[in-house]
Amino acid sequence: MRLENKVALISGGSKGMGAVEAKLFAKEGAKIVIGDLLESEGRQVEAEINETGGECIFVPLDVTNEVQWEQAVAAAVGHFGKLDILINNAGIFRTNAVEETSSNEWDQVMDVNAKGVFLGAKAVIPAMREAGGGSIINLSSVAGLVGAAYSTAYSASKGAVRLFTKSTAIQYAADGIRSNSIHPGVIQTDMTADAIANPDFKEQRVDPTPLGRLGQPEDVAMGALYLASDESSFVTGAELVIDGGWTAQ
């Protein structure tokens, strides 16, 4: 198993990509801590993993709340003895052009998508240092690489995650803590369900995707698994683009 003896904390692990990551990581031998605002969905994933022979606990986590991050890390260390992997997966999506983006929307998106990643990284570093190293995986987006016609705060937040990941990588490489970002294209999840339901969506986003399909949560989870495992022990500060070729043209 590729994550034997590892302990992983996954924010936003109650549904979508986070839930798929939680189940895949558990199958590969990791003990899982799901941190999410959505308790009933999270408890369901927790039960599913535990019933199939894995080990998982759910902790309530608002990623903008520093105290809750500390509690989530303490739960990981308390239950499973250590923390090796953090997936900063939680995020929200808003589509408005610059002029239509309210100051409040900006703050909300930046808080969850960017500051949430910062607080998660900050909270896990002491535990990873004690474990002799670790792997932090931040879910950015293709919107963290190229401009978007219809998102503003979202693009800014994902750009922030991209570079914050590199800062973390450089600052903590000496402690054996790696940090990498993932840049998915359009993935079919709850977060993107509204956008996908838009009649123009196929023409705007699927047709120009060279591989000609939407991404699935599994596509991202497999990338996260590679970055989480020791197979990538020489990879830090890197960007894993999983976008069907969207940004290659």
Binding site: I170, P210, D219, M222, Y226, G237, I242, D243
Partner: peptide, 28 residues
């Protein structure tokens, strides 16, 4: 290991991407 990941169907939604395996050298 990076080549294995890209070669396998695990990376079936990845194309035109760059996998940097450099110990952080170009992140700085």
């Amino acid at each position: 290991y990076g080549a294995l990941f890209l070669a396998s169907d695990e990376a079936s939604f990845m194309t035109g991407s760059e996998l940097i395996i450099d110990g952080g050298r170009t992140a700085e």
